[in-house]
Computed example of a mutant assay.
Amino acid sequence: MYTYGMQPTQRLLTIKDLQDNKGIRKYSMATAISRDEAEACAAAGIHTISCDYDDYDVVRAGAPNALIITALPPTQFATDEEILRAALSVMERGSDALFTTRGLRSIEKLAHEGFSVMSHIGVSPRHSTRYGGMKAVGKTVESAKEVQRRFRQLEDAGAFGVEVELIAGETLAEISKRSSLVTFSIGAGAGADVIFLYTNDICGETETLPRHAKSYGNLAAILKEAQAERIKALTAFHEDVLSGGFPTADHAAKVTPDTLAAFVAELDRE
């Protein structure tokens, strides 16, 4: 197959696969912000990788055959023209889909260009003060109806999928099976098509784990140990410099005595 930039490529999974297998099988999604994280996701078999626009190139380098969905941060790309330029740029470089929390007009514009676009429904950390905090939605009939209304709006706008965050699991399961949108659940239960968590939560880097997340590692302890070792090494280097222990003659390039004498003679003549 080819990227939007007309470069031949291979993908282990496509957007079409997600759509065709909706309600049939489950997929996993994790975040990546570096080549190391992307390589780890690929090695672990994670189906879909989510990354921010600025991280796309290093993530793609680490996971050349992965299905990558790139987020266009609303504070980074404000106008319709900026959003479209960013979308064209990252899609040309090989992204498989786009994620935006902007309004329906932006989703329609991107979908009109033929891009696979997903949006967000549920609790948004960016708007948490507006709604009184990180409180789950879809727990009352009226709240569930509002979620369903948003689903229909995104379908009409041309989105292929939606990240569903902190929506009551049973509510999401009923809506998802009645919707064409591929659902990506983060704290919205197992009734979605794709189950999504942040890599730092999965790997145990987060000090206070969100209720909806689960840690499968203890990377925080390893990183703390690595930082202690880093400080120890830097301290030793610093003290060695002050004491004259580093560098020694063995740590520098050498010149023959004759060459040095000739050079010094030249300096003295000047």
Rank of each mutant, 00 (worst) to 15 (best):
T75Y: 10
T75Q: 03
Q76R: 15
F77V: 07
F77K: 10
F77W: 08
F77L: 03
A78P: 01
T79N: 04
T79K: 04
T79Q: 04
T79D: 01
T79L: 05
T79P: 00
D80M: 14
D80V: 13
D80F: 13
D80T: 10
D80K: 15
D80I: 12
D80S: 13
D80Y: 14
D80R: 14
D80H: 14
E81C: 02
E82T: 08
I83C: 10
I83D: 04
L84D: 00
L84K: 04
L84Q: 04
L84G: 01
R85V: 11
R85I: 12
A86S: 06
A86K: 12
L88K: 14
L88N: 12
S89F: 09
S89H: 12
V90Y: 05
V90R: 00
V90T: 00
V90W: 03
M91G: 09
M91Y: 07
E92C: 08
E92F: 00
E92K: 09
R93N: 15
R93C: 14
R93S: 13
R93V: 08
G94P: 12
G94D: 13
G94Q: 12
G94Y: 06
G94H: 09
S95N: 02
S95V: 03
S95T: 03
S95I: 03
S95K: 01
D96Q: 13
D96F: 00
D96G: 15
D96E: 13
A97V: 02
A97D: 00
L98P: 06
L98R: 10
L98A: 12
F99A: 00
F99C: 03
T100H: 06
T100C: 03
T100S: 05
T101R: 08
T101W: 05
T101N: 12
T101Y: 07
T101A: 10
R102H: 15
R102N: 13
G103P: 07
G103A: 09
G103I: 10
G103M: 10
L104Y: 04
L104T: 02
R105K: 06
S106T: 11
S106H: 05
I107H: 07
I107M: 11
I107P: 02
I107R: 08
E108W: 00
K109Y: 02
K109V: 06
K109F: 05
K109R: 13
K109P: 03
K109C: 10
